[in-house]
Design a protein around this nucleic acid. Sequence first.
DNA 1: TCCTTAGTGAGAATGATTCTCAGATGCACG
DNA 2: CGTGCATCTGAGAATCATTCTCACTAAGGA
Lengths: 150, 150
Amino acid sequence: MSEHHHPVSAPCAGDLFGGSRLSAARRAIAEAVRSLGGAFTAEELHAAVSATHAGIGVATVYRAVAAMSAAGALAPVGSRDGSTLYALCAGGDHHHHLVCTGCGTVVGIECPVDGSLLSSAKSAGYTVTAHEVTLYGLCAACAACAAERD
Amino acid sequence: MSEHHHPVSAPCAGDLFGGSRLSAARRAIAEAVRSLGGAFTAEELHAAVSATHAGIGVATVYRAVAAMSAAGALAPVGSRDGSTLYALCAGGDHHHHLVCTGCGTVVGIECPVDGSLLSSAKSAGYTVTAHEVTLYGLCAACAACAAERD
DNA sequence: TCCTTAGTGAGAATGATTCTCAGATGCACG
DNA sequence: CGTGCATCTGAGAATCATTCTCACTAAGGA
């Protein structure tokens, strides 16, 4: 579906995979990632792809997720029931993610790791090379739904 | 080793498990957690326990890790080769961890998630309920070792 | 168009973690 | 100092996410 011409500004499959080869399977997977819209597990992604393009193997989905992660288009944003959750990653600048634990929507947030934290690490003798920050919460819709349930 | 009398301020096995029952196996596991000193996987913890107290099953170690995590005495601090890394958690105040990727030593760091980040999340419609922050880097010894290797 | 090489699908393999179950043991209570 | 029973334990099977293998296909530069 949606086989119309899309504007060049919309992220197309090629962007998600960086420089790697673009196959029919990967095009379908990129489309499914966009259609999911929020955080998803590899299994959910496989199910979404299968709904429109049957016959794509689980291993291919895992490989695609790895490729998109390597390209920086996808980021792990926690886990659910033992499976890793991934989400489409916003533009190229350094940021982190806030995940709605109700519906899985994800928004980018600025990085809270500032110089003072790094220098206090430095004074403890540590050189920081990487960090991970993820916030969890409820989006407006899910918060309203939860409040109503009480 | 270090079988001297320790002051009451040192965390004893009971503290690590909160209110749950204290068995010989759990005492041995608590001792091993302390002897490891840094981040460890469940498998490494099992190996450490087995070195001094043979016959403790893997399932018991996993159960103990779950109990200590529930009691807040242990926290997950990333993963290595697909296994979760845990580390002894400092006192009861809110903090996060900085893990040396060389030797696994862990230090507590203050939480960088401040009001401004939360309020910007709020203005995006999100209510933040939890967050995860972990820094990775090299301790002084491992940094020196890495520099020397060049 | 051809060739090289990355990507693919199916299913087996791997490996961390959890579950099951019968038996052992803390520990609260008397 | 018993006793009762809920909790904990060990062994190994089971689960299940993820990765690997391998023969095959197809992208895309030359």
